[in-house]
Design a protein around this nucleic acid. Structure first.
Lengths: 355, 355
DNA sequence: CGACATTATGATATCGATAACACTCGAAGC
DNA sequence: GCTTCGAGTGTTATCGATATCATAATGTCG
């Protein structure tokens, strides 16, 4: 009777809901809170009639389930965490979309984070995510700090690494060999008669997929006996369209007789092509240019861009699927589990030999 | 003694952490759990020495704070929810990035959802988000279902609507008038001497920003006495690059003498330009084309694309900033609060009159 | 018709942290 | 020397749902 008449916390604004709880809904209907809780999950054995009355009450009162309370006692957070290098890159936003779609109707929600291609940022984010006790986690790539690996091991949840084939996988992998894919593109273009190959990529090793593509290029060129490739590094990954344009200028200054240039991604390839056109060069004709990733832009632009198509969306879907399997499965922990995702060369106008 | 010797849940894999709690860390250090809790937040008055010992123990044991437990008792989830139409559109992913950046070091985490431009999906997502008890929510646009509005009102948390100026704002707004912005572009191009205006956009009213741009176009053309605009609708929003290409074909078939075409977004403008080039038309020269949104592609492509630059990233940052203000403020609930974000016409090659 | 399974529901303990308040102890003030 | 204060720490209740076990009502079968 002392502090009953005035609420402790005055933060509430007029019209605010006074934190409605399950118990109040229960009282309103004349059942126990437990029954209301059951009514919210289809599995429970609540009579159709009771459930209906409860749901009407929920509607009338405007009650919204509180999962944070529920997850504490059920020990299931309902979260899946995913870390991507950047959401402002359509390849990764496609993957994020794939994850989201695969999670639909599973009752799991996606917690997304951006690492900005930095392992330290990834470490921070992993910790932040684990504090929410996700039931599984999806990472991009296979390079993680030692502490990150330790935390993941301790967490005891399934981990999926994507977009690469890590040398030392943590748990599940859904990806492909970036170096093999780039090598395949080199061979396809060599098959068309190109001989003098150039390459454009970022400067540092931050972007492990970028480095792998570069080494795949290098290896393939040498294996074909086409001498060392002409490599230009420009800008900190991820390199932009604009940097692609600047890079091709450097490359052509240094090696004017280059026949075909492969770029670490379609974005830089696009920038390179546009810069060439702006300078009056013909693409193809004077120079052929190819990218990697098959972004939407590449099929549309003129000339359309030869590239490697990667199933970005599928990587997301499958990564989520592997996670769901692991969560459902009895936890047999069958060691490493690797899902290879496809890629293919898409030959388009930008490397058309007949031009 | 029946199921004591074998654990119920075999889900745990070898090497798993046996759910370490704060109490165990506390026991290890020889303090109370409360002190450990305090050590995790800088505000608390824990002696430097104790804090150090606690953090060493945390490190040694590999303890990770459990926020879900904490948020239940502190009644602060540490979440901000944000809904965008699509993450696969760089305008919105830029906004998401802005929100993320603004939230850095605030201890708040972003819960992101995609509505796919559908109000019903938005309603579902709002409910899903509210179940996590976010401390604030950021929405795109001002069209919401009645139930969504009711839930938001009941939730009693600050709401920010973005990217538009809703007629009936819920709470805070961070945006601009899409129709005014498009009208400005029309006037700028009319000022360059263009007279016969065409417009390309999506078919339905799902995308409210698209509709507003369309009506801004229409109004401006009429006000300038340039007759009704030539409007082509193509595809369900958001319309793709490819659809932009198809749309311009229809438009030019129907009105071959069109001088300039405005598109609902840069993506469709890009598709339209590329299609024209593919058909041997000169852009500009034979036809001028402009977009909306100033995507990265528009400054790079050849010809570069005239457009409206929108501060996508800033919208995100400011939306988050308004939310933080509201959370800090004593909850005076000072009615509506509208933050206008800038936009500007960017004239580029694609509408160059001298070409 | 009695033993037993099945269905629908309730009571109570609990998840793991934090709020709120209590307490100890040494320093400061008069 | 006694009161007052604040820094540092502990104790207990609690957040709001769910796991678990108990119980009442109903149905089944030989």
């Amino acid at each position: 009777m002392k502090n009953e008449d005035e609420p402790k916390d005055k933060r509430l604004k007029p019209g605010d809901a006074q934190k409605l709880t399950m118990a109040e809904v229960a009282k309103y209907v004349g059942v126990s809170a437990m029954t209301v809780s059951r009514a919210f999950r289809q599995d429970a054995s609540v009579s159709e009639e009771t459930r209906k009355r409860i749901m009407e009450a929920v509607d009338a009162l405007g009650y919204v389930l509180d999962l944070s309370a529920g997850s504490l006692s059920s020990r299931r957070s309902g979260f899946i965490a995913a870390l991507v290098p950047s959401i402002n890159n359509s390849n990764f936003s496609d993957t994020a979309r794939g994850i989201t779609d695969a999670l639909e109707n599973t009752g799991l929600q996606l917690l997304l984070g951006y690492t900005d291609y930095a392992a330290e940022k990834e470490e921070e984010l992993i910790e932040a995510m684990l504090r929410r006790r996700p039931e599984g986690i999806i990472l991009t790539g296979g390079s993680h700090t030692a502490r990150a690996r330790r935390m993941l091991a301790k967490a005891g949840i399934p981990v999926v690494e994507t977009w690469e084939l890590p040398e030392d996988p943590i748990n599940h992998v859904v990806g492909f060999s970036n170096s093999e894919a780039m090598a395949l593109l080199v061979r396809a273009l060599a098959g068309q008669g190109y001989r003098k190959f150039g390459y454009i990529g970022g400067t540092t090793a931050r972007d492990t997929r970028g480095s792998q593509r570069r080494s795949g290029f290098q290896k393939a060129v040498e294996e074909l006996g086409l001498g060392p490739g002409r490599m230009i590094s420009f800008g900190v990954p991820p390199i932009t369209m604009e940097q692609g344009g600047q890079a091709i200028v450097s490359l052509l200054e240094r090696w004017p007789d280059t026949e075909v240039v492969l770029c670490v991604s379609d974005l830089s390839a696009f920038g390179a092509i546009m810069e060439c056109k702006r300078r009056g060069m013909k693409v193809p004709g004077d120079i052929a240019i190819a990218g990697f990733g098959d972004y939407e832009i590449s099929s549309i632009c003129h000339p359309s861009i030869t590239t490697i198509n990667v199933d970005c969306y599928g990587i997301g879907r499958q990564a989520a699927a592997r996670l769901l399997d692991a969560l459902q499965g009895s936890g047999e922990a069958t060691g490493d589990d690797i899902t290879l995702t496809g890629y293919r060369v898409v030959l388009r106008e930008s490397t058309d030999r007949s031009a």
